[in-house]
């Protein structure tokens, strides 16, 4: 049994977007804070810290996860994916990201990272979603700028494009 004591700092290691990362965390350190403050991956944003707004959504071992409702220690040994890992290269956007830009599916961009993670996760598993599916999925996210419709449209466009570029999909 490993008991991490409250007042100590303990190593946490996981794979972030395919690359190993390591830093120290207290047991109470939230994954959202750990990613941002210890690892420097500030693309994941914190909007409510009670699991409602969805801005901090990441993927852990293939599961959509509110990183504000997760301890850094829980992610130890896991595969974590964040918005920083979505683009195929630093100077290129992925299909979903391009669809967002084309459709003005973001304004301030603060909630966007979480929405992208939910959509990326979903579209890999559901290649032909309906508008209702997308709206149901995204009801777990709050956006205060866009009124949502451009986001839904971007998601549907990206789904259609991904379906026709299976090559891209399999290695994206």
């Amino acid at each position: 049994m490993t008991r991490l004591s409250a007042d100590g700092r303990h190593p946490v290691r996981f794979k972030l977007n395919g690359r190993p990362v390591e830093a120290e965390a207290e047991p109470r350190t939230l994954l959202s804070d750990f990613l941002r403050q210890q690892i420097g991956a500030t693309g994941t944003h914190v909007g409510c810290e009670h699991g409602v707004c969805g801005a901090c959504t990441v993927i852990i071992d293939g599961m959509l996860t509110r990183s504000c409702l997760t301890l850094a220690a829980q992610a130890d040994g896991c595969e974590v994916q964040t918005v920083e890992g979505l683009a195929p290269s630093p100077d290129r956007l992925g299909i979903l990201q391009q669809a967002f830009r084309r459709n003005h599916a973001l304004q301030c961009g603060f909630c966007t990272a979480g929405i992208l993670m939910s959509l990326d996760h979903y579209l890999r598993r559901h290649p032909a979603p309906s508008e209702a599916d997308i709206r149901d999925l995204l009801s777990g996210h709050l956006c205060r700028c866009t009124g949502y419709t451009p986001i839904v449209k971007a998601a549907l466009e990206a789904a259609a494009e991904l379906a026709t570029t299976t090559q891209e999909k399999s290695d994206a």
Partner: peptide, 21 residues
């Protein structure tokens, strides 16, 4: 809005859980 401090155990068996409780 950060949690108060606590110890954390990642249980490796049910017995560990029961022992802790």
């Amino acid at each position: 809005m950060k949690p108060a401090a606590f110890d954390y155990v990642r249980a490796e068996s049910v017995n560990e859980v029961l022992e802790g409780l």
